Simulated assay, not measured.
Amino acid sequence: MLVAFATGSQTCIDAHFGLAPAFAIYDVTAEAIVSKGMVYCPQEFASEADKEDKVETRMQILHGCTVAYCTSIGGPAAARLVQSGIHPLKVPEGTVIEDELKRLQTLLAGSPPPWLRKRLQQEKRLKED
């Protein structure tokens, strides 16, 4: 599954979802962790309307991700993410990405929470079709 981390440093989760300069993307399974690189968010917007919908821009950037880690996210933005199939997770600022990847991998190898198990089953069905 694809996992995104809101980051400016590329090593820690250190950004608010709507203000993140970039997201580090990883493909995580119980057996492997593979970096898919960094995806940078636009900081300059053509118009005020574009700036207002930076959540939509980030949702498009993160299309295909199952989880998005950040230090903070507003309620409406979190609801929009969930509706688009991305589960937001808030963690303390400075959380090391590598530590979260290992924790997530251990979770996948064991007993994932119900929301994650359901999402993994959906992804498996899509791959089989």
Score class of each variant (00 low, 15 high):
P76H: 10
K127F: 09
W115Y: 12
V67K: 00
R58F: 03
D50V: 03
M38G: 04
R125Y: 09
P113Q: 09
T57V: 12
S84A: 15
A30S: 07
K90T: 13
M1R: 02
E31D: 11
L116Y: 02
L81A: 09
R103Y: 02
S111Y: 11
M38R: 12
G8S: 09
I25Q: 00
E56A: 14
G110A: 09
T95R: 07
A109G: 05
R80N: 13
T57Q: 12
A32D: 13
A68E: 00
E128Y: 05
M59T: 09
A32Q: 15
G110H: 03
I13R: 00
P76K: 13
S84C: 15
L62Y: 01
G75C: 13
Q122Y: 04
Q121F: 06
I25D: 01
D50L: 09
C12T: 14
V67Y: 01
T71F: 01
A78N: 06
G64N: 04
D50S: 08
D129V: 14
I33P: 00
Y69H: 00
L19S: 14
F45S: 08
D99Q: 11
F5I: 03
T11S: 10
T57F: 08
V55I: 15
D99M: 05
A79P: 07
P113E: 09
E56R: 14
E52S: 13
P112C: 08
G74P: 14
G94D: 03
M59R: 12
L101H: 03
I97E: 02
D50G: 10
R125V: 11
